[in-house]
Design a protein around this nucleic acid. Structure first.
Length: 489
RNA sequence: GGCCCCGUCGUCUAGUCUGGCCUAGGACACAGGCUUUUCAAGCCUGGUACACGGGUUCGAAUCCCGUCGGGGCUACCA
């Protein structure tokens, strides 16, 4: 990348439109922008592009802000804090757009267009039928000033079009290299619905200039908007910007990621019990790879190793398996109290309210099995309440029911005489040595484990018994014996 | 359809600019094994990829051309 001039600092922005919950693809765009700014001591600006008042909702804006914070990222200027270029919400900046719109109109670089949507659609179909690329033919480009004014006064509905130059635009994209577009193919684009209602390409161009943005890092879907914004900049006498279009996140069928296949909003992942570190780590790995092949990275490590020039050009399929693995690794690296705090909202959801000490023991026993925090509910639920299970679960391999009963009885007897203070796994294991020698490990331990967990898979019985304690273990063994009796009878 | 972008294991990718060190490396997933009372974790082992076709070259995943395939955009959305 070209070095910046002395004293000039990097300013990047994330400019979402609050028309839906914070999307996972947007999260990656934020991440890349944030990294870019932080690596260079620059500024990261958050700008809300809510020019579409129909679709924009305050709750979506809140969700976006909350999502960015959740990821552990921050911004220097934005709608919630004042900054040198306030306001940072486009709906509050209409006066600026109006000023530039008037300038364009005055200089005859833009004009009012009175064509109806219906007429436009007919034109479109005609061009398509003739095999010509559909674009606005410029019918209203030469409407005399007077007539235009009269028609507007009369109340004829109109939009503002940019009188697009017939030219080719070439720019150097940081990730894709040289990209060339023939601007004339797009025709005269509509830049505003009216003098107070700017549209995306126009508003974004004005703001990027006014907010002193130096680099635009955004998703590939904006690649074809770039030449439109460049011709607007040129017409307005604005500075040129540098661009980086990052590859899209894809569905398994390689189309743009959507709800059809996978959860696509950040809040979904949070609610499923993914941790922000894992999500950020995963997202940055979609399109970029660390030089030394170490893939489990903290934000700090990402910051020191990431290089936007090395990001992949092709889109990347969202591979949930890898996210799961990364998430399990992050969980494994948390200590017990951290994990407990992370788990609290999930526990609350299920109305599990037992002492922290007990939950901590359960966490220790189950932590390495968790892919997500939510898994804890399913995996460790039996510690809080014994699930109902089939009697045959108690039977080890092809042992008989009566042998299973004998084994369970034996274990029960031993555990009943084991003093409460000796309910720690080593002592429990030692106490059970005798029947194990007599009947074999599987014949003793499988029924025991099934009895205290009620599940096909769980931590080992010694650990479970220690956590459950003498009383609860006895209760569960009794229940198991009842069950096996019912089979025998 | 038009414009633009892209194309290395099933997936994410290293390598491509500056051709040889690539009999293509890593990770996830998968299979097998070790451990073992189950599951998980951990450790070990394994298989699978340069889209295709032509060139250029002593030599191509890497350079050139073509073909095919995929995607994005083509709004009075962003």
């Amino acid at each position: 990348m070209t070095a910046l001039k002395e004293g000039e600092s990097v300013r990047v922005r994330f400019a979402p439109s609050p028309t839906g919950f914070f999307h996972i693809g947007s999260a990656r765009t934020v991440l890349f922008n944030w990294i870019f700014a932080r690596q260079r001591g620059g500024s990261f600006i958050l700008r809300i592009e809510d020019t579409d008042s129909e679709r924009s909702k305050p709750e979506y804006e809140e969700d976006i802000l909350a999502g960015i914070r959740w990821l552990g990222l921050d911004w220097d200027e934005g709608p919630d804090k004042s900054g040198p270029f306030s306001p940072y919400r486009q709906s509050e900046r209409r006066e600026f757009y109006k000023k530039y719109l008037e300038k364009l109109l005055e200089e005859k670089k833009a004009y009012f267009c009175f064509c109806s949507k219906e007429q436009l659609e007919i034109d479109r179909q005609n061009m398509l039928a003739q095999g010509i690329p559909p674009k606005y033919a410029g019918r209203c480009r030469n409407v005399p000033e007077k007539e235009s004014e009269e028609r507007r006064k009369r109340g004829d509905s109109s939009v503002i079009r940019f009188a697009s130059p017939e030219t080719e635009i070439e720019f150097n994209d940081i990730v894709r290299g040289k990209v060339k577009f023939d601007v004339s193919l797009a025709g005269d684009i509509i830049i505003a619905k009216g003098i107070d209602e700017p549209l995306y390409n126009f508003a974004a161009t004005v703001d990027d200039e006014m907010m002193n943005i130096t680099h635009v890092i955004r998703g590939e879907e904006h690649l074809s908007n770039t030449p439109k914004q460049i011709i607007l900049q040129e017409a307005l006498g604005f500075r040129p910007l540098k661009y980086a279009h990052i590859p899209l996140i894809l569905n398994p069928d390689r189309t743009k990621m959507s709800k059809r296949y996978l959860e696509s909003s950040v809040r979904d992942y949070r609610e499923q019990g993914y941790l922000p570190e894992a999500v950020a780590n995963f997202l940055v790995l979609l399109g970029w790879h660390p030089k030394d092949d170490r893939e489990i990275l903290s934000l700090e490590e990402i910051l020191s190793g990431f290089d936007i020039k090395r990001v992949q050009k092709a889109g990347a399929i969202f591979n949930i398996e890898k996210l799961n693995w990364l998430n399990s690794q992050v969980i494994k690296n948390k200590n017990v109290s951290e994990t407990l705090d992370l788990l609290r909202p999930f526990l609350k959801e299920k109305n599990i309210s037992v002492g922290d000490d007990f939950v901590k023991k359960v966490i220790t026993a189950e932590k390495e099995r968790l892919k997500t925090l939510r898994d804890f509910l399913e995996l460790a639920g039996f510690f809080f309440e014994l699930p109902d299970y089939e009697p045959k679960l108690l039977i080890w391999k092809d042992n008989s029911s009566s042998a299973t009963k004998t084994s369970l009885r034996e274990s029960e007897k031993i555990l009943n005489v084991l003093p409460e203070e000796n309910f720690i796994k080593e002592k429990i294991a030692a106490a059970l040595q005798q029947p194990i020698e007599k009947m074999g490990r599987g014949a003793v331990l499988w029924p025991l484990r099934a009895a205290v967990s009620g599940k096909k898979a769980s931590p080992d019985p010694f650990e479970i018994i220690e956590i459950l304690g003498k009383k609860e273990t006895a209760r569960r063994l009794e229940k198991a014996i009842e069950k096996i009796n019912s089979v025998i009878a």
